[in-house]
Design a protein around this nucleic acid. Structure first.
Length: 404
RNA sequence: GUGACCGUAGCUCAACCUGGUUAGAGCGUCGCCCUGUGGAGGCGAAUGUUGCGGGUUCAACUCCCGUCGGUCACCCCA
């Protein structure tokens, strides 16, 4: 194999066990929280007809990962999870039960130029609820999201909330500019608008108009809900200049920021009733959030919330000699039966010293050691790798200790 | 898609600007000290088509072009 093949494609990543375990940890918590709120999993294909995505946003076709399949069909890798879900709503209209709550965690693919935190294959965690027009639906999705960050152990996460409907009188180009306020400042926003053909006076007017928007009834309903759901008021905030410049955003819009881990957002959501109807042909209300899985993991790592995963198993059963190989196997098997993750050193010829070094490097909590002496007395030595302490026990006792 | 910077041992880097005999160091790895016990220490050893391809040159890790990959900004972000 030539050496150039030993690398991943631009913007694609491998996850070695340590990293993969961290991802699984995060994924499991997110799923658990979602299900505790009654959200059910949904999965859609990796490959879709190109028109499903391209039909939606015609202009920026460049970013699709698209190609022709063997049958000459134009296909594209999953670009996001919202659009396929809209397809599902149309395709299975007769079987879905509303309100329909679903979460979805799958990779999305975009042919972007990669940079930090932006890859061509990345994982998105979406939480959406369909069939409910009331802002209570938006509030619930925000509450589930905040619950996830709370359960992950963050001291705080803030939902910045606004209502796109309050910007009805502001043209889209102005909204898109105002969305960048945090990044480019007031001057930058005004310049951006002027560049896009808006008069200077109007640009200034739009900016100050938006900055002075006050929360409406919809926003109040959402905040009341969050308060009742047990979130301190430091966990949510009205943010008039939050714009979510997606063309399909409507109604409540929000973003999640984690102050302890930087100011950029880890996810954002909005209502998109109109897009659902456009794609599915069904008049179904829908609102939800897309959470950046990678960004959330990065934030959790930065805040020291991720357990230090080194190994999957709790104990290594060492092999003293070829003659005792069968004993080691039996011991490992009986521990495994008790539900404890156990690994057997897979080579009877290797010196005990090397087996211990292995256990040490992998950070395995315990090692079981037994030679002829112990076998004769029907006991084993349980070594605690952290303290170095070693006790002689019966297997039953070892299992009891390990399952505690 | 546009622009900038980067790519040397498993890892972090030196040598590149000002081309010149066997490309170095630390960490890690492996072995021994230690024939029933890891982490510390001592001693010893192995390792590179200098990302890949081409060009210039008597000579390229070094200069030039291309390509692949990375980082950053812009663009974009359903």
């Amino acid at each position: 194999m030539s050496k150039t093949v030993l690398q991943t494609l631009k913007g694609f990543r491998d996850f070695l066990p340590k990293e993969a375990m961290q991802r699984q940890w995060l994924r499991n918590i997110m799923i658990k929280v979602c299900e505790s709120w009654g959200y059910e999993p949904l999965e859609t294909p990796t490959l879709e007809p190109l028109e499903l995505f391209a039909g939606q946003i015609g202009e920026d076709e460049k970013l699709f990962f698209k190609f022709k399949d063997q049958g000459g069909r134009d296909v594209a890798l999953r670009y996001d999870q919202t659009v396929p879900t809209c397809r599902v709503i149309g395709q299975y209209a007769s079987q879905l039960i509303y309100p329909f709550r679903r979460y979805q965690i799958q990779p999305a693919f975009r042919a972007e130029k990669p940079q930090k935190g932006r890859y061509r294959e990345f994982t998105q965690f979406d939480i959406d609820i369909f069939g409910i027009l009331s802002p209570v639906a938006d509030a619930e999705v925000i509450a589930v999201t905040l619950d996830i960050y709370r359960k992950l152990g963050f001291k705080s996460a803030i939902a910045l909330v606004n209502n796109r409907d309050l910007m009805k009188d502001v043209p889209y180009t102005a909204i898109a500019a105002i969305d960048k306020l945090k990044k480019i400042g007031e001057e930058g926003v005004i310049q951006e608008m002027v560049k896009k053909g808006i008069d200077l006076d109007k640009a200034k007017y739009y900016l100050s108009y938006v900055q002075n928007i006050k929360p409406d009834e919809t926003v109040k309903i959402i905040f009341d809900y969050l308060k009742s759901a047990g979130f301190d008021k430091t966990w949510y905030k009205f943010e008039p200049t939050l714009a979510r410049s997606f063309s399909y955003s409507q109604g409540p819009i929000w973003e999640i920021v984690i102050p302890e881990a930087g100011e950029s957002s880890v996810g954002g959501g909005e209502r998109y009733d109109a897009m659902i109807e456009r794609i599915s042909g069904q008049k179904v209300a829908g609102t939800g959030i897309g959470i950046g899985f990678d960004r959330t993991l990065e934030a959790a790592l930065a805040c020291g919330l991720v357990p230090d995963f080194q190994s999957v198993s709790k104990v290594l059963v060492s092999v003293f000699s070829k003659e005792l190989w069968n004993n080691s196997m039996k011991v490992a098997e009986s521990i495994r039966k008790s539900g404890v993750a156990v690994e057997l050193y897979p080579d009877p010829e290797v010196k005990l010293e090397k087996q211990l070094k292995y256990a040490n490097k992998k950070n395995l909590p315990y090692v079981l050691i037994f030679g002829p002496e112990e076998v004769k007395n029907n006991v084993v030595k349980l070594k605690d790798m952290k303290t170095g302490e070693q006790t002689t026990e019966t297997i039953e006792n070892v299992i009891k200790k390990l399952t505690d």
